[in-house]
């Protein structure tokens, strides 16, 4: 832990997990969508559902979806900023089951060009977050490193293709996780990297046979 996590962060209150963490979830989701959000249906689970309004979790999440930072004084008024920007949003309660972290949220998002994304994320304490699911498939990453998420058909060879591409581009892999939803069905790779993955490599990946979807989370500003 660094000293600026002890004396800091500078943030809009009242809660690092329920407010600052919610902003961060919004930030990461916006980047994953890759475009401005047009429509957001947001479902709160557990403690987010019970104490979310009092902690401004709803406003914080919406602020994050618009790209506001955790210390942005506009956070409390994010509803009116979103309305002005023509964004549609709704909030609901949901039960994501026993295994879900108490501070969890599911977001169904649609971008201005019609791209869709469904995400389950949780705020795990002190403003740190985890993205748990993307489009119904497991994913586990913190948004603290550039992250490549590849949905592919569960066939041999795809992992090697992706890792050799990264090696070729001198991108170091920090963590790598593989999930699948049934043999021969769909699989997902979640790769946290120490460096950014170049744009053209992402394009190349998208055109590979058997690759269904490539999502990339970059740390650089959009």
């Amino acid at each position: 832990m660094n000293i600026f996590n002890i004396i800091g962060p500078v943030m809009v209150g009242p809660s690092s997990s329920h407010t600052a963490g919610a902003v961060r979830i919004g930030n990461v989701c916006r980047k994953l969508l890759g475009e401005k959000v047009r429509k957001a249906d947001i479902y709160f689970h557990g403690s987010f559902r019970r104490t979310g309004r009092g902690h401004g979790t709803d406003r914080a999440l919406l602020a994050g979806l618009m790209g506001f930072a955790v210390d942005d004084p506009r956070i409390p008024d994010s509803f009116s900023y979103a309305e002005k920007a023509g964004m549609l949003f709704s909030f609901h309660g949901i039960d994501l089951g026993e295994d879900a972290h108490p501070n969890s949220v599911k977001l169904d998002l649609e971008s201005v060009s019609g791209r869709k994304l469904s995400i389950v994320a949780s705020s795990v304490g002190g403003g740190s977050i985890l993205i748990n699911e993307i489009d119904g498939l497991s994913a586990n990453f913190s948004g603290e490193l550039p992250t490549l998420i590849v949905h592919n058909l569960d066939q041999p060879g795809h992992v090697a293709e992706v890792t050799s591409m990264l090696q070729h581009k001198s991108v170091n892999i920090a963590t790598m996780q593989l999930y699948r939803s049934g043999r021969g069905g769909h699989a997902v790779m979640v790769i946290e990297c120490d460096q950014e993955v170049p744009e053209e490599s992402l394009d190349w990946l998208k055109h590979l046979e058997g690759v269904e979807k490539v999502t990339y989370y970059s740390l650089s500003e959009d």
Binding site: I6, I7, G8, P9, V10, M11, V12, G13, P14, S15, S16, T19, A20, G56, R59, D71, P73, I75, P76, G126
Partner: peptide, 15 residues
């Protein structure tokens, strides 16, 4: 101010 969603320094926490 923290309870009212204003900007503060969490030191060591927001509370």
């Amino acid at each position: 101010s923290n309870a009212c969603m204003k900007r503060i320094v969490a030191a060591p926490t927001a509370g």
